[in-house]
Amino acid sequence: MPDTRMKQVVFHLRRYEPGKDREPHWEQYKIDSPPGMTVLDGLWKVKELFAPTLAWRSSCRMGICGSCGMLINGRPRLACNTQISELQSDVVAVGPLPNFGIIKDLVPDLHPMFEAHRELMPYLIREDLQEQDSPTGEYWQTPHELERYLQFSYCIKCGCCMAACPTMATDPQYSGPMPLGQAHRYNSDTRDGGFAKRRELLEGGRGPWRCHFAGECSQVCPKGVDPAKAIQMMKQDLVFDLLKLRVRKPAARLVDKPCGKRREDIPAAPPRTVTG
């Protein structure tokens, strides 16, 4: 039988007001928590009752947008996707995602992550620049080829993986699990021809060789994207490419357009029933 009892929980919130606070500090707020209450609901309640200036990012409330990544009881999670009851504690400690700067309270500065993501060219690259800028149609791809990157395409860029990564904790040069995972997502897409361009960017300190499989990025990913797997597969591609063992295929070609001849046995459309 589900637990329907209301219980009291204490929110420990990491507060930081730029221009006013020199260092972030913890503040406590006690609220009633009904069953099913998420951490995000709790934050709204704290804001409504006690701390109107409390700041965080959130939008969809259903684990889609990736805005509400936070450090909740020591683990990066989505606040909207985490019920207070699943924490099995009367204390809910919420801080901004670590390894990112703090803009205010629970709002991390995700700019470095998106910058690293942009640098690794997370889009289809075609040899024909005209075709790349103005695609003229669909490209061939089999379901089997789709499976090679589909898992990685579910990334919502919430930053939880970046906050959990121990390499990110000490190495500001490292691109991090999200940008690298997304670079592999495009490298393994048969419609893409940009492996050689991305390979140049993946060499050195910001590339995948800083990853030594702590595996935490995959453990905390709220969408099951498994960036650690993507990074290891990217390393395999890079090594195989160096040894000339990587199968190089041209990017998938365009699906042929319809030939333009109309079948003669197709009946004419019925007359319009709505005018104007």
Binding site: L97, P98, F100, I102, I103, D109, C165, T170
Partner: peptide, 11 residues
């Protein structure tokens, strides 16, 4: 933004 990188604590 205020720095919040974990450093060795992250290990």
């Amino acid at each position: 933004a205020h720095p919040n990188r974990l450093g060795i604590r992250g290990w």
